[in-house]
């Protein structure tokens, strides 16, 4: 593959993922509004937000590390785009290799990493509180998240290839149709709420407490980049869960594509429901919850998987 070919592929994915992501965020916002008995924004609201932000002035704090401050939001966007591209390549082109599961797990930490670096480089006090929370959140959800990816990997014959996991599910039925599968699905669903950073785990931004936390100093298109990255994560993370637990069917035929979209929407709606029915947790509660109960249940899930239940 030549560089120009990959480059055009990347740009194409970036555009596609941004559009889908902004739509997904709209679904999330609209559903939230309906649950709260409001009308909600029109479908183009998120696009309008991004366009408006790109027209605004960029402010940089005096004490900020300029390089890190500007590069972090860009890093957030490109890393989430890479995750999305790999997942799309797996789904559409059937391009996969042993170990892409591990690569994705590691790549999915980079958006959080870039939020932390960006917040840290702004030199703001409230941003420091925000990144402190984000770091502990990262530590907390990572443990059950790992349990949640080990379960389907073992179920599909100890593989680390997403393609193999999909193929296995097409032959033997989705991973979720077993006791350990249900446990794994619940665990990974909750921990991915932390990964995306939505309520009840949005304490790193927490507008009402620390005024946006890590993002407090960001404005203009740089803030827009962070919003875009979060929207892309709204696509990537649910897709990842669909592949691991819900059969992750191929999207070559029209009916297959439709079923796939429905599965994706189910996961997205579940995340939105969790976010709308729970209050924001404190960091020590989150730590105890993730490292305590959720991990214990996760380990139980692995034991059940190994015994074939």
């Amino acid at each position: 593959m030549s560089v120009i070919y990959i480059f055009s592929y990347f740009v194409l994915f970036f555009v596609v993922l941004s559009i889908i992501g902004l739509f997904a965020s709209w679904i999330d916002r609209k559903l939230t509004a309906r649950i709260q008995w409001r009308v909600g924004p029109p479908w183009y609201q998120n696009f309008a937000d991004i366009i408006k932000l790109s027209g605004k002035e960029v402010l940089i704090p005096e004490n900020a590390n300029k390089f890190m401050f500007i590069f972090s939001p860009i890093l957030a966007v490109i890393s989430s785009t890479i995750c999305g591209s790999i997942i799309f390549l797996v789904l559409k082109e059937r391009f996969g290799f042993g170990g892409d599961l591990i690569l994705l797990v590691y790549l999915l930490t980079i958006p959080s990493l870039s939020i932390i670096l960006g917040g840290s480089s702004s030199g703001n006090v409230l941003a420091s509180v925000g990144i402190s929370r984000e770091l502990k959140l990262l530590l907390s959800y990572e443990l059950p998240f790992i349990c949640g990816i080990i379960i389907p990997a073992i179920k599909s014959g100890s593989t680390t290839s997403l393609i193999e996991i999909i193929k296995h599910q097409q032959i033997y039925g989705s991973n979720i149709f077993s006791l350990s599968g249900i446990i794994g699905f619940i665990i990974i669903l909750i921990s991915s709420c932390g990964k995306i950073g939505v309520v009840p785990f949005d304490l790193a931004e927490a507008e009402t407490e620390i005024a946006g936390g890590s993002l407090i100093e960001y404005s203009g298109i740089l803030l827009g980049f962070y919003k875009l990255a979060k929207s892309i994560l709204f696509v990537v993370v649910p897709l990842f869960i669909v592949i691991l637990y819900l059969g992750g069917s191929a999207i070559n035929s029209f009916s297959g594509f439709l079923i796939f979209v429905v599965k994706y929407l189910i996961v997205l709606i579940l995340i939105t429901l969790i976010r709308n029915t729970n209050p924001r947790l404190r960091i020590d509660q989150i730590l105890r919850f993730f490292w305590g109960w959720l991990t214990l249940i996760g380990i139980l899930g692995i034991l059940l998987t190994l015994s074939g239940v």
């Binding site: 990347f10 005096e62 004490n63 290799f97 690569l103």
Partner: peptide, 30 residues
């Protein structure tokens, strides 16, 4: 995948260079 990461990092740097050129305003922290 590595090529993809490599290319995307170059893409990121290009965007970064564009931003360096844009006039920004220095402000105190809030």
């Amino acid at each position: 995948s590595l090529n993809l990461i490599f290319v995307s990092l170059i893409f990121g740097f290009i965007i970064y260079l564009i931003f360096i050129g844009i006039k920004e305003r220095k402000v105190g922290t809030f």
